[in-house]
Design a protein around this nucleic acid. Sequence first.
DNA 1: TCATCTATATGCATGCTGCACCTAGATGAT
DNA 2: ATCATCTAGGTGCAGCATGCATATAGATGA
Lengths: 132, 132
Amino acid sequence: MPGRRGGGAHNRCGRRINRFLEPCLLLLLHGGESYGYELLENLGKFGFTENPADSSTIYRILRSLENRSFVTSRWAEGDSGPARRVYSLSPAGDGYLQIWVRDLEETDRILHRFFNEYRNHMDLHHNNGKET
Amino acid sequence: MPGRRGGGAHNRCGRRINRFLEPCLLLLLHGGESYGYELLENLGKFGFTENPADSSTIYRILRSLENRSFVTSRWAEGDSGPARRVYSLSPAGDGYLQIWVRDLEETDRILHRFFNEYRNHMDLHHNNGKET
DNA sequence: TCATCTATATGCATGCTGCACCTAGATGAT
DNA sequence: ATCATCTAGGTGCAGCATGCATATAGATGA
């Protein structure tokens, strides 16, 4: 299948929560300036199964954050290897991270309301669920 | 702005978690057969802010579930109003709901790993966070 | 007849994301 | 010198998910 191109989001790994990589990157940058390639490696902390995202997504999110003035960037000569575009969190970006956290907390509440509905329902019907 | 059309996903209400309406509908249908318009009203249980989704999304998800044999449908004359397309959960659909639940539990773990990273980081830097 | 509620459905635009691919500097091996 | 490989950043494309606008149409009551 050589013509097989694109294919969209089959791997739901990074897509469970919409734009989730964005707050992860903001949080990493809150710890100090960094650049795309390094951020990509540090995203492992957030414990997705395997590597969290394609590099293209990372670079695109970083540019998007810069367009909205949530980060700033400068070119820096690497000690070794090609030059790096180093990003720093701006005060506005810090505020945006706070907004993201509150948004994710709301997501968490929604998720748990679902779990409650589910358990409630399964308790009433007390069939199904796990017995094979 | 009369020409303003489309506009995509500005309202992130239903989009926090990807395809989240699907497991909600499956859970509702686990409680017994129902139809689009009624399901739309019952989605309120899941406590999104305001109404959870556009009706078009609901109808499309239901057809998509039917294409994958997770639900079956039949036409039923309403006691009042137009005919309804009544959906029932299939055994495969029940299994699919279980898969969704496990998937959402994984999403929950990822979310909480983020919260842990966040709190950890903010504890260390013990500035920022909430003091205005 | 007409407005309104119920009910289902389609068209379009936009946003997000993964895969394939491209460019290019640095580094070490052959 | 040439080449493979690692580092680093980036673009193009396709596909999916979704909200808004709109269309269709039966039922109901003013």
